[in-house]
Simulated assay, not measured.
Amino acid sequence: MTGHLATAHALLRRHPLVDGHNDLPWALRTRFGGDLDRLDLAGPVPGTQTDLPRLRRGGVGGQFWSVYVPGTLQGDSAVAATLEQVDLVHRMIRAHPDDLELALGADDVAAAFARGRIASLLGAEGGHSIANSLGVLRVLHRLGVRYLTLTHNVNVPWADSATDVPAIGGLSPFGREVVREMHRLGMLVDLSHVAADTARDVLAVAEAPVVFSHSGARAVCDSPRNVPDDLLRRLAANGGVCMVTFVPDFVSPRCRAWALGLRTEVERRGLDPRDAGVRATVGAEYAAEHPRPRASLAEVADHVEHVRTVAGIDHVGIGGDYDGTDDVPDGLDDVACYPALVAELLGRGWSQDDCVKLVGGNVLRVLREAEAVSRSAAAVRGPSTARIEDLDRP
């Protein structure tokens, strides 16, 4: 493995690794109030899985920083919090100009990488962030947001989430208009977190390749957050990319079973399993009698290989979800560990060319194709003024 690890490091010096999802901005908001004067990203940041030295050691050349806000925020509150997170990422980039550079497209990623900087893209996680407004969607795009995950853990009025009770059976007419407007803008449609039927509805109307920014293969680990094989095949036909996540509950069947056991215990006590504080408190007690299993780097590689087998080498990527999970697989402790995953795949017989596509080539191709679709669409149609109340009448 030592030889493969050296090869992996050399490969990442030549080709940008572009990770699809990192929640450091939310971690900085919750731990430090978003006050960048209270921390130094150029040194170890306590309690996080991400900082600049570890990004450098991990060979990260491009990062989609999530401007996530929780689905408990709705309407104006969700929009305001999302804008604050966008501002936080912009401040983070300005505070470290020798290390981070804002990227608005694929060419910007390549240029930043050539200058020795980490290309910084923004992704919004959950349609609640636009409060049913295509105007807000356009403003987020102007501020640099380059993908929108249509839902987070709960439904939005126009799209069903993978982890909520289905309300509309997929994507509503207004939801289709959101997708259409995103294609006109050149914003990637992100299907992580959405219900399978929502994803199927999106793929039926998509004009450009879509992404799953941080999801696994459901055939490897049966979680609703993972992508079933029929969708992986349709994703390949669409030209999109499934960026494999490192979240243990989505990676390891043993971790998934443990999480379901914890949920059962929370519900037995009459508590809300969606409450993170409740899960943490009950989880500590539950783990005392039921030790939490560990996911492994090899299991993540199994997901990567399954996506390649079903969808093809042109349709797989990496979306670790660092700082969006309190647990990570052994061997993938933080953002410094990406070379270990590349080394594992090289050891399984992957070619260097295949690894280049995995680490960033595929998602950069998707960005370029979305940009081309945007140029064509914007030439024939203007901004949509559709309103949810007009399209989604009861």
Rank of each mutant, 00 (worst) to 15 (best):
R292T: 10
R292W: 09
P293T: 12
R294A: 15
R294M: 14
L297M: 11
L297V: 09
L297A: 12
A298N: 06
E299K: 09
E299N: 09
A301Q: 12
A301L: 11
V304S: 05
H306V: 00
H306R: 01
V307I: 08
R308G: 07
R308K: 13
R308P: 00
R308T: 11
T309W: 04
V310R: 02
V310P: 03
A311W: 05
G312Y: 01
G312T: 03
G312F: 01
G312I: 00
I313P: 03
I313N: 06
H315Y: 13
V316S: 01
V316F: 01
G317W: 11
I318C: 09
G319E: 06
G320L: 07
D321T: 05
D321C: 10
D321V: 08
D323C: 08
D323G: 06
G324S: 10
G324M: 11
T325C: 14
T325V: 14
D330I: 12
G331Y: 10
L332S: 06
D333V: 07
D334A: 04
D334V: 04
V335T: 14
V335H: 11
Y338M: 13
Y338S: 07
A340D: 13
A340G: 07
L341E: 02
V342P: 02
V342D: 01
V342A: 03
A343W: 05
A343Q: 05
E344F: 04
L346G: 03
L346M: 06
G347V: 02
G347R: 03
G349E: 05
W350F: 08
W350I: 04
W350E: 01
W350R: 02
S351V: 05
S351R: 08
S351E: 02
